[in-house]
């Protein structure tokens, strides 16, 4: 990290992949080799579009791949719009990685549930990669993924390929469109279809807050230890290092204490409106 506060380093776009109408995945490489860094699944970077601004974006690539960084970005504001429009060869500023990780490496020997809603699959993809690379260390694994409509699903082809690694993959949509032959309904309805026994398993959950709350509640209701449920939170962030004060949620700074939290640390604050 640069010694200058909040100073982005130049990274070059190597590849762009359109995931759906408003989501693209960028693969980036550091312009200068000394800017490379490693990250842990669940961490995020601050991505800078020159002169436009910065946005906190989770890392959606493989943590064991050195020399490149993968980000999946939804076009929702000025900065993410500029980032989404990047072409191969363009330069984007990156600083990071920041935040806490999904503690997947410390949950070996267990059944694992990955539950994602919408863009929430992006920060969970490094978890799936970790499991695939260490498949023998985990027992039954299921990925449950929900989105609004079939067209919103991320990484659709890749989802199918995960099945080759003895990972159960189930997808559901809130609203089906012609051609959809899989599940309909919110993602929590998939939990009973997972070939994973919640008791003794660990879950990594990311999506809208309401989805994470109901997922955690369903999982713990089915016997999962609350301490084994992990969620990833989002708040407004400017610095990502605990100085700007904006990402506070109760006693926590989402940037440095999170974004990944064990469920019991978030459950008391998530039901208080406008906290």
């Amino acid at each position: 990290m640069s010694t200058e506060l909040l100073m982005p380093q130049p990274w070059v776009v190597q590849k762009t992949e359109r995931e759906n109408e408003d989501v693209v995945t960028l693969t980036l490489a550091p312009e200068s080799s000394d800017h490379g860094f490693s990250f842990l699944p669940g961490q995020f970077n601050m991505l800078y579009a020159f002169g436009v601004g910065e946005s906190a974006i989770s890392i959606s690539g493989d943590a064991t791949t050195n020399g490149s960084m993968v980000h999946t970005i939804r076009d929702v504001g000025a900065v993410t719009h500029a980032l989404s429009a990047a072409h191969v060869g363009d330069v984007i500023g990156i600083r990071g990685p920041y935040g806490s990780e999904w503690p997947i490496a410390s949950h070996t020997g267990r059944d694992i549930l990955v539950v994602a809603g919408g863009i929430g699959l992006a920060p969970l993809r490094p978890v799936v990669y970790h499991i695939i690379e260490n498949r023998h260390k985990y027992k039954d694994v299921a990925v449950l993924y929900g989105s609004r409509e079939p067209k919103d699903l991320l990484f659709r082809a890749e989802l199918e390929s995960w099945k080759d690694h003895n990972i159960q993959v189930e997808a559901t949509v809130d609203n089906a469109t012609p051609g959809w032959t899989r599940h309909i309904g919110v993602v929590t309805t998939l939990i009973r279809r997972a070939k994973v026994e919640p008791r003794g398993a660990a879950a990594f959950v990311c999506g809208p807050e309401i989805m994470m709350r109901f997922t955690a509640s369903e999982l713990t209701g089915r016997g999962m230890n609350p301490d084994d449920v992990f969620i990833s939170m989002e708040r407004n962030m400017k610095c990502a290092v605990g100085l700007c004060g904006r990402c506070q949620l109760g006693p926590e700074f989402i940037c440095k204490d999170g974004p990944v939290f064990p469920w019991p640390r978030m459950s008391p604050v998530m039901t208080i409106r406008e906290l």
Binding site: L6, Y48, F50, G51, V52, G53, E54, K238, C239, L243, C244, G245, R246
Partner: peptide, 9 residues
Amino acid sequence: FCSDVEDST
């Protein structure tokens, strides 16, 4: 101590 940042060109 809370702050905002503004990026501009």
